Computed example of a mutant assay.
Amino acid sequence: MSLEVSPISPSDLEATVGVWMAAFEEGIGAALMNPSDPAVDFPRHVSHLQKDLKEDKENILRIFKCVDTATGEIAGIAEWHFYLREQTDEELDKHLERPKPGDDSYRECDEVIYDWLKGERRKDMGNRAYIYLYILAIRPQYQRKGVGSALLEHGLQQVDEFGLESYLEASMQGKPLYERFGFRVVNEREFDMTVFGKEGTDRNATMLRPAKTVAP
């Protein structure tokens, strides 16, 4: 299978969200991406993505697609946030803002997830410059076929050009892939999924990759 990684285009937004929602069928990813009804969640995610890209004046958001060249289908998506300078306290608060009561995506049960995700990132990275892998999503039929590796390799080549640390949150299924690319666990947390109307528990990790410099 031949794969090609490139930036998404405006015409890819709906397909991008489609990959997100298909990829996260379990755990806290599903709780946040697929909380209710696809007919409601899908247009909400598309609208939020359009808004985020429109308001991104500093080119912080960089979203890449991995395409199966034989079919033209988008097999996976990686969204990176490039914080290339130290952030002010106000900027940090904005980047770590979470849904509030009254927002269309707010659910009280999600607060425990956001408290951990946002709180750990604030504690681990603070105001300093770094690059954040917000989401790596792969269609189920393309998982374990090199799509995640292709997206990570492409993104980390750009990360290393800036000589910055990179940070992410990972499921236990994704953790071995990230470890192969130099990420190491900072902390782990187990979530009770019955709070979200699902069975069992879901364990997640925060991970950090040290800065690397590219030889001249």
Rank of each mutant, 00 (worst) to 15 (best):
Y142A: 00
E108S: 10
S6V: 02
H154C: 06
D89E: 15
H81E: 13
E165Y: 14
G72H: 10
K65H: 10
M33I: 11
E161L: 13
S2Q: 12
N59K: 13
L168Q: 03
R209Y: 06
E4K: 11
A129W: 11
P35V: 11
M193C: 09
E73W: 01
M172I: 11
L156Y: 13
D115A: 14
L168E: 05
E4Q: 10
H48K: 14
K175P: 02
P10M: 02
S6P: 03
D56E: 06
A137N: 08
A39I: 03
K198L: 08
M21L: 07
S149V: 01
K198R: 15
I28C: 09
D52T: 07
W116K: 01
S2V: 06
S166L: 08
S36P: 00
V112I: 15
R189Q: 15
E111D: 14
T71F: 05
E79V: 11
D68M: 00
L136V: 14
A205K: 00
A39K: 13
E120V: 15
G200A: 07
I131G: 02
V185I: 14
T16V: 14
R122T: 04
G102C: 06
A129E: 09
R189E: 13
E73I: 06
L164K: 04
E73N: 06
W80M: 12
C66F: 10
L32T: 13
N34Y: 06
H48L: 14
S47R: 15
K145Q: 13
Y167C: 02
G18K: 01
D104H: 09
A39F: 03
T194I: 09
Q141N: 11
E108W: 03
R128D: 10
N127F: 04
L208R: 13
N204L: 07
W20G: 02
H48P: 00
S36R: 11
N204Y: 15
K175R: 15
G148V: 05
S11I: 07
L61E: 02
G148N: 06
E111A: 06
G126H: 08
L32F: 05
D93I: 01
V40T: 14
D103K: 12
Y106A: 02
Q50F: 00
T88M: 09
S11W: 05
Y142P: 08
K123F: 09
P7G: 01
E86R: 15
